[in-house]
């Protein structure tokens, strides 16, 4: 009898060991979505988040293997302390010190975005990594070759097996792994958020005045608590489009000349330099641009041309108040969250 128990016990044990497929132990993750945000755009049904998937995505995000030289990772131009942009770099800095033509965008709240990049050329979060990876001025690699490198790595093969239950790493799992990590980069715990969600935070009189001014003068483009309406507009930063036609490069429509995606303003205190070409270095310069520096061209946004006068009417003290308000969008938890950090 005892032998029987031992036997059946060990049989069960063997079965349990055989069933010790890592995939089974990969726990699903449900993102906490901020109550002051709209419904996400990203369809998680096509890519259910898991602990192993997010961890793998993070590892890929910080791995130079994704570039031709093995040095330039996603995290190279998207650094957490700068809200995942490249502090101090006007335009993206790629392999062999090559320079792109646009300012690398900060990364946060991507699952609420319909299109990506300054010109909106990419229509799906999963396909975002392909753009910098294959751009000769950025990572100068091919997805095909990255997959080859990853498949040669025992470590990555095991990690993909655990996260997705696959033996061979293909485009689908690779792209979805990166989305799993970038989907978790949610910034929604700034002082402003805690104020609008009645979580105990207060704004000062100056910040509140800045918020009121922001709502009346800025929020038609920097709309909702995502602080962008996702549209493309010419904000008059230049009237010379010889080297960058903006959205027109995607649509081939001359009425899109010089239009760029309205960026979110979350963590804007830390995302300098500003504008698509990184030409402005401080928030003061940005506000001065909108009050006095708007350049007229055929596609200038009508909101920036009232009664033939370019720009937005702003006094010096109003600008100061708006900047004070913008700094309440700084999300210290996000900038230091260990779950997102390289080390």
């Amino acid at each position: 009898m005892r032998l029987k128990v031992i036997l059946s016990g060990s049989v069960l044990g063997v079965i349990a060991l055989m069933a010790f497929d890592f995939h089974v132990f990969n726990r699903p993750v449900e993102l906490k979505l901020p109550s002051n945000f709209p419904e996400p755009v990203y369809d998680f049904k096509t890519n259910p988040l898991t602990e192993a998937g997010i961890q793998l995505g993070k590892e890929l995000f910080y791995d130079g293997k994704l570039s031709r030289t093995g040095v330039v990772s996603c995290g190279f131009c998207h650094q957490q302390p700068s809200a995942f942009t490249h502090h101090g770099h006007e335009v993206s800095h790629g392999v062999d010190d090559r320079l792109g033509k646009r300012n690398s965008l900060p990364i946060s709240n991507l699952i609420w975005m319909k299109t990506f990049f300054w010109d909106g050329g990419v229509n799906h979060l999963d396909f975002v990594p392909l753009n910098p990876m294959e751009n000769p001025l950025e990572m100068d690699e091919t997805l095909e070759n990255v997959l080859k490198k990853l498949n040669e790595s025992e470590h990555y093969r095991a990690a993909f097996r655990q996260a997705f239950g696959v033996d061979e790493i293909k485009s689908t799992e690779f792209l979805k792994a990166l989305s799993q990590f970038t989907a978790t980069l949610i910034s929604a715990n700034s002082r402003y958020d805690k104020y609008v969600r009645n979580e105990g935070a207060q704004l000062t009189a100056q910040e509140l005045n800045g918020l009121a001014l922001f709502k009346s003068k800025c929020s038609s483009c920097h709309a909702t608590d995502l602080f962008t309406d996702g549209s493309y507009r010419n904000n008059g930063i230049t009237s010379d489009f010889r080297f960058d036609k903006g959205r027109e490069e995607v649509t081939s429509d001359v009425t899109d000349r010089g239009k760029f995606k309205v960026p979110s303003l979350r963590n804007v205190e830390y995302t300098d330099p500003y504008m698509h070409d990184g030409r402005l270095t401080s928030l003061e310069e940005v506000l001065n641009h909108y009050s006095d520096g708007v350049k007229i061209s055929e596609t200038l946004d009508p909101l920036l041309l009232k009664d033939g006068r370019p720009g937005i009417a702003l006094t010096e003290s109003e600008k100061a108040d708006i900047i004070t308000f913008l700094k309440t969008l700084t999300d210290k938890e996000f900038l230091a969250d260990k779950r997102f950090s390289e080390y």
Binding site: E144, L147, K176
Partner: peptide, 18 residues
């Protein structure tokens, strides 16, 4: 406009569609 799970075979951006 669909995700990579719908881009298999010749539509695979890392293989068939190179």
């Amino acid at each position: 406009t669909q995700g990579p799970e719908k881009r298999q075979g010749v539509l695979d951006v890392g293989a068939g569609a190179r």
